[in-house]
């Protein structure tokens, strides 16, 4: 199994060092840190893909430039859990090479110790987001 990229390892270790209640707080911090869209993607709804595995409306777009990946996401304020999931992936995947993103294990969301804190059903939403992110990167790399 390939090693996790340092960005994702760091996020995982941050979560696992905390108790269940603190993990929720950290997820909330991630939710609050979800970066706004860059100017060139504002009002470009057509570029974004809806993550239907999430209960809240969340949309993602992955850019690949010179082999480096940048992920963007929007999710409503009233859906902080989903925002938190998106923010983890935006922070963890952005800056990685396309190859590294494609090698991220599909069960990464379940490695964060959130299944107990948030419930496995909800974490599945992040798995859907990751799968879609990887698929976008694969498509954009092939083209």
């Amino acid at each position: 199994m390939p090693a996790l990229p340092p960005s994702l390892t760091e996020i995982r270790d941050e979560f696992l060092a905390l108790d269940l209640k603190e993990r929720l707080q950290l997820l909330l911090e991630f939710a609050n840190e979800l970066p706004p869209l860059p100017d060139h993607l504002k009002d470009r709804d057509d570029l974004f893909e809806r993550v239907i595995e999430c209960q809240a409306p969340v949309f993602i777009d992955l850019e690949v430039e010179d082999g480096a990946v940048r992920m963007h996401a929007t999710a409503p304020r009233e859906a902080p859990t989903t925002r938190g999931f998106a923010s983890i992936l935006v922070q963890g995947l952005s800056g990685l090479s396309a190859q590294d993103v494609l090698a991220v294990p599909g069960d990464y969301p379940h490695l964060l110790g959130l299944d107990e804190a948030v419930s496995p059903l909800r974490v599945r939403g992040m798995s859907g987001m990751l799968a879609r992110a990887k698929r976008q990167v694969a498509e954009k790399t092939a083209a």
Binding site: L24, L28, A31, A56, E78, P80, G84
Partner: peptide, 9 residues
């Protein structure tokens, strides 16, 4: 809530 973190906001 449906969203497990909404209360915390």
């Amino acid at each position: 809530d449906e969203d497990v973190l909404l209360y915390e906001t």
